[in-house]
Design a binder for these strands. Sequence first.
DNA 1: ATGAGCGTTGCGTATTCTGCAATCCCAATC
DNA 2: GATTGGGATTGCAGAATACGCAACGCTCAT
Lengths: 244, 244
Amino acid sequence: MSQSLGRALQILKSLGEGERSLDQLAAELGVHKTTVLRLLRTMEAERFVRRDSAHRYRLGSQLFALADVAREQHVVRQVAAPHLRELNQKTGQTVHLAAWENGEVIYVDKLDSVRSVRMYSQVGVPAALHCTAVGKVLLAAQPKRQREALLATLDYKVYTPNTITDADRLRDELQLTKERGWAQDKAEHESFINCIGAPLSDSTGRVVGAVSLSVPDVLLNYDQVLELLPELLATANAISADYN
Amino acid sequence: MSQSLGRALQILKSLGEGERSLDQLAAELGVHKTTVLRLLRTMEAERFVRRDSAHRYRLGSQLFALADVAREQHVVRQVAAPHLRELNQKTGQTVHLAAWENGEVIYVDKLDSVRSVRMYSQVGVPAALHCTAVGKVLLAAQPKRQREALLATLDYKVYTPNTITDADRLRDELQLTKERGWAQDKAEHESFINCIGAPLSDSTGRVVGAVSLSVPDVLLNYDQVLELLPELLATANAISADYN
DNA sequence: ATGAGCGTTGCGTATTCTGCAATCCCAATC
DNA sequence: GATTGGGATTGCAGAATACGCAACGCTCAT
């Protein structure tokens, strides 16, 4: 729609991965470096990008300022924050908050396990719908028409031996999720990590997000994770109750 | 330089202040709403902007995704973080970290006072050079030519009765700052708040940032703040030492 | 039902962006 | 100190791109 802006956003995303030189950026975008230079200059003027002494470009402070604000604005996140912290402290496990954004499920917040076992999720990045607890929760809550459309078009990428790889099995799983009010992920996304997830609803009952707990099986096996279910559901309910 | 990009960045900044409707944005920019719509669409596609059900626009999650990654990159910040936390805990006062960026001094990190007295600084926002401790520290460390150029072009805005309002007095102050290795701000920026600041240097001795302590005088008078000086300098030295 | 207020779309125009090529700047090398 | 090379920068002319207009649609409220 807007070409130059689109390119500029690509530049920002690229800079998000690390500093770049002018030529590097030009090569990545496949455009002339003059073009990149001019985009960088405009962004530099507004401090979205900065340039160090060696002419290498990085993200600028304006971006940080905005990002902080964006977080605050994210209502679900704001309401959920204290409850997530509590859940994180009580269980000691990794807690995720996710929400729909533009037809994708995006991780909106993450609190690491106190045992600091590394997880490959990242705030702001889309979650797979077919093999994560939050994905299943939010997918299950979609109106039937859209759910089926998504089921049909999903890319059933295989992450582990347990990953669900076809629409029929996933449909059953979603049915189960909806009936019992929570979703599981038995090492379907990352081997050795089990998750359970629950929906967050607003006052009208519409699902606006999902919370999940992720536990490596060196710490707890799946049955032990299920013992955390009451805590998870209590948190989800508390957030939903606050959300008015 | 790039008109459409420039407008898009203005939109982002505007959204940083709160959610907006299409027309509002068009009015603020003084352009046709079609134009705004197209820019928003491109940004939406990359999740820099999101749109709620009522067609109101907000900042999107891509922003905090970028910021999270980039913050880690900010080496000074990364190296300084644990030391700042320690300083914050030991003194209980507000701690700031600032660095040059595009010819301005920008607050890069901030740890609030445990007494949570509100301060009008904000991460990502420029600091005044003539009336803040970090500003003076970094200005004093500039090469003479640039320092004089800045002294000549500064906008000596008056914030409090103590604000330094001319180049000559500021030059003396910078001289003093350089000699003793730290800067003061005796209620020059915010009435009733005194600050002390110290420089951070890399292995070659080049000043790469500044740390400061800010204390409202209801808690400590200026002489009492000076008693925190050893802590501040120790922190600055520790950060400088780590920075290799 | 009707209208008002926004958001959205198609289209022609001209502004704006682009890529090229020449130039400049800095740094390293001889 | 001159020379060479890599990268950044600038001027320019052509063309794609973004712009504004005006008409259409949608939703909500009266």
